[in-house]
């Protein structure tokens, strides 16, 4: 049976953190729920699993690519048009430094921007249940579970003092 999403909305962060214990009791794992907030909370504050991200890999790859292109461009130019200046070697690193530095940063910046977009999943392919009060400081516990366990999750969220429970497709409970 397909998985469904249900969003429990809490007006207090402590209540939301406590409610995750109730979710665990009905068989929801750390991987099965996400926390939606209007500002960042310390990682793990709600007992959620810390997600894996690769944001630091992007600038590294970008920087290496940018440096390689800049190095090829500058060294290739110097070899193609050799001009001996002041007895210096044809391949002079000081003359290549600025362009190499620029290239490195350009690559790193572009890849970091792409990395943030990719790792944040922007834009999202599908819309999960959401409530605008989240940006006002409410806490949303977004639970993904099989359809047959929706009621148990719903009950757990209500017992956890959720002020609203919103189901995928619009069915909602208001405390």
């Amino acid at each position: 049976m397909a998985n469904k999403n249900v969003l429990g909305l809490f007006d207090n962060a402590d209540t939301a953190a406590d409610a995750t214990d109730g979710l665990m009791e009905v068989g929801v794992n750390q991987e099965d729920f996400d926390v939606l907030t209007g500002s960042p909370y310390p990682e793990g504050a709600f007992g959620e699993k810390t997600p894996v991200h690769h944001i630091y890999v992007f600038p590294l790859i970008g920087a290496l690519m940018g440096l390689s292109v800049a190095f090829l461009l500058t060294s290739g130019t110097q070899i193609a048009y050799p001009i001996v200046t002041g007895g210096k070697p044809i391949l002079s690193f000081p003359a290549m430094t600025i362009i190499s530095y620029e290239g490195t940063l350009l690559g790193a910046v572009i890849f970091t921007i792409l990395g943030i977009i990719f790792e944040s999943r922007l834009p999202r392919a599908r819309l999960d249940p959401y409530d605008p009060r989240i940006t006002e400081g409410y806490i949303g516990l977004l639970v993904t579970c099989p359809e047959e366990r929706l009621d148990a999750v719903d009950q757990a969220l209500r017992r956890g003092k959720a002020v609203d429970v919103i189901h995928e497709g619009g069915r909602s409970f208001r405390a």
């Binding site: 630091y56 970091t112 999960d128 605008p132 989240i134």
Partner: peptide
């Protein structure tokens, strides 16, 4: 959200997005 517009497909404020935003801004 305050204007009552349709929810965006971009930002939800989940844990992954906050972590990536903070780390990304630092980089």
């Amino acid at each position: 959200d305050q204007a009552g517009s349709e929810p965006s497909t971009k930002w939800r404020g989940n844990v992954q997005q906050w972590i990536v935003l903070n780390r990304g801004l630092a980089v």
